[in-house]
């Protein structure tokens, strides 16, 4: 069964939203879960968080940051095009608190991952405060969607929109007021690490969502192994969300760089500057 793209929107200079047909996934997905997407023959299998779903329309929303050849292949799809393979929902659902007040922190494309978590919390009656950030105004995504679920503080590095500065600075002020029971943070690894370091001395539990390299997404390959506390976990089946105070972020960041040279090669090929196979 292929999955038709029914809508496409550019959210920021390199982040694109695709709404695709996936009726079963639309019905059963839970916050925090992801899918493995393979565009077609020869494409990579890549993990993408389910940012939203419409059970009635039978669609799920995928938010994709174009970084390598495979993600660029996906964002180049137009409504009417099809994705050959989508498997899921994978990963454990988010550990949502049942009541009280939660702080959701999203950085860059991670804001789209925070969205279903905020949705889940909101549905449970938890008061949601979101802090989201981007380099500048055009990089801020999912603000409107998150505003429907609670208060939103926007931060930009250059101050072109909302507060000037990093999300951690705004988070520090909010946390100092003392009403937050749980922090959910998703974004670039340095951001998640900074949030975890901020909340650790305050003793505020913090959940982060990790994005290591994956192949099958079902626990079979072990490529997504991460160190959490003194244990090695597979992000695909044990995560992707973990206790941010236990995660070895340096290892995660290091392992994420494994295929950097290959990505450059693949990008060069896609741009027609590749010399491989040309003698």
């Amino acid at each position: 069964m292929t999955h038709k793209v029914v809508a496409r929107a550019a959210l920021s200079p390199n982040v694109t939203r695709l709404v695709v047909e996936a009726p079963r996934l639309a019905q059963i997905r839970q916050p925090g879960q992801f899918v493995i997407v393979r565009k077609g023959e020869g494409s990579e299998r890549i993990p993408l968080t389910i940012a939203d779903a419409d059970p009635e329309a039978g669609t799920i929303t995928l938010v994709i940051q174009a970084v390598g050849r495979s993600t660029r292949e996906l964002v180049a799809l137009a409504p009417g095009d099809a994705i050959e393979d989508i498997a899921g929902p994978l990963g454990r659902p988010t550990d949502l608190i049942a009541s009280g007040r939660a702080l959701c922190i999203g950085g860059g494309v991670g804001t789209a991952v925070i969205h279903p978590i905020a949705q889940g919390l909101h549905r449970q009656g938890v008061s949601v405060l979101s802090i989201i950030g981007g380099r500048s105004r055009e990089w801020v995504i999912y603000e409107e969607e998150l505003r429907r679920l609670g208060e939103v503080i926007v931060c930009t590095d250059d101050g072109s929109y909302g507060r000037k500065g990093f999300v951690t600075e705004a988070a520090k002020e909010v946390l100092q007021q003392g009403s937050i029971q749980m922090v959910y943070a998703v974004g670039p690894v340095p951001m998640m690490r900074a949030v975890a370091e901020l909340t650790r001395p305050m003793g505020v539990p913090t959940i982060v969502s990790l994005n290591p390299v994956m192949v099958d997404g079902t626990g079979m390959c072990g490529g997504c192994r991460v160190a959490v506390g003194d244990q090695v976990k597979f992000a695909c089946v044990d995560g992707p969300e973990f206790d941010g105070h236990q995660v070895d972020f340096a290892l995660l960041m290091d392992r994420l760089s494994t295929y950097r040279d290959f990505e450059q090669e693949a990008n060069a090929c896609a741009e027609g500057t590749c010399r491989i196979g040309l003698g």
């Binding site: 020869g42 494409s43 990579e44 299998r45 050849r69 495979s70 292949e73 192949v215 099958d216 079979m220 390959c221 072990g222 490529g223 192994r225 160190a227 090695v232 290892l251 290091d254 392992r255 760089s257 494994t258 295929y259 290959f262 090669e265 693949a266 090929c269 590749c274 491989i276 196979g277």
Partner: peptide, 30 residues
């Protein structure tokens, strides 16, 4: 064991067999 360059046989063989990584960059998986 988590250094870059350590694979499980499952991952190594899946990349090469199922994902045809030996044909990279023609195939998408390295």
């Amino acid at each position: 064991e988590n250094l870059k360059g350590v694979y499980s046989a499952n991952e190594y063989l899946t990349r090469v067999n199922l994902m045809a990584a030996y044909q990279f960059p023609k195939a998408g998986t390295p």
